[in-house]
């Protein structure tokens, strides 16, 4: 098989698998991680709903997961994933591992986006007699949105990187293909194409994210 044959035969599928893993992990990460981020922010803030115990516990769990390099997390999760979906060496297995990494990652990213909102704005919002959800939706989110968009871009790009690592244990995707052909079979051409594709994807995501963030900031 020529390099071109390999690419034609495997690249579309590998890309789809990577896309699947990254999209699932991004959505789950943003939703659940964002909720944890809100929880961390709200329990930290004296003006909103300070709760040292909840903040410390959630913070500890988030830090604990984030302490593990993704490759180690992946290995640790193999039995868990096996329990839930049977075969861990599939894109779905990889997606679950990526979700577990994405949630605490985005929790910290979003927490820091919220924390950057001028406390004076929170003070003014509290002074109107608004409830905590009203303050979050009506003032903190609109103000944090540009930072959140930039944070989502960072999360997606980081997940693309991690998704390649999922390939190293044979769970599919573009990383899997790079290992199998580029590394094991010395198909430098395949590796080069994958490198170029990754660079293009990351650049495009960054460009879209920057534009969006700029449009949201007034």
């Amino acid at each position: 098989m020529t390099t071109w044959d390999i690419i034609q035969a495997h690249l579309p599928e590998a890309l789809l698998e990577t896309l699947y893993m990254v999209v699932v992990a991004t959505v789950v990460g943003i939703v659940l991680g964002g909720l944890l981020g809100v929880l961390l922010y709200v329990t930290e803030s004296r003006l909103l709903h300070a709760n040292r115990a909840v903040n410390a516990i959630v913070g500890f769990i988030v830090n604990a997961i984030r302490s593990l390099p993704f490759l180690i997390l992946l290995v640790v999760l193999i039995p868990v994933v096996t329990f839930f979906v049977g075969d861990p060496y599939t894109p779905t297995g990889g997606a679950i591992a990526l979700c577990v990494a994405a949630i605490p990652f985005f929790a910290r990213i979003s927490e820091s986006a919220f924390a950057q909102v001028d406390p004076g704005i929170v003070e003014a919002s509290v002074s109107t007699g608004a409830t905590v959800p009203q303050i979050l939706w009506g003032a903190v989110f609109p103000q944090a949105r540009p930072s959140l968009v930039r944070g989502i871009v960072i999360t997606i790009i980081s997940l693309i990187g991690s998704s390649a690592m999922v390939g190293t244990i044979g769970a599919g995707g573009i990383g899997d293909m790079a290992i199998q052909y580029g590394y094991n079979r010395y198909e430098t051409g395949v590796l080069a194409v994958i490198v170029v594709i990754l660079i293009v994807i990351v650049q495009v995501i960054q460009w879209i994210g920057n534009r969006r963030a700029k449009a949201l900031a007034h």
């Binding site: 001028d118 004076g120 704005i121 003070e123 003014a124 919002s125 509290v126 002074s127 109107t128 007699g129 608004a130 409830t131 009203q134 009506g138 003032a139 609109p142 103000q143 949105r145 540009p146 949201l216 900031a217 007034h218």
Partner: peptide, 29 residues
Amino acid sequence: RRKIGFVFQGFNLVGNLTVGQNIQFALKA
């Protein structure tokens, strides 16, 4: 707090909301 307005040195308006939306925030509250 609804019956006690507060005006700050640094204005503390939500920069990413329009003037109208800033006021509507308080109306919603």
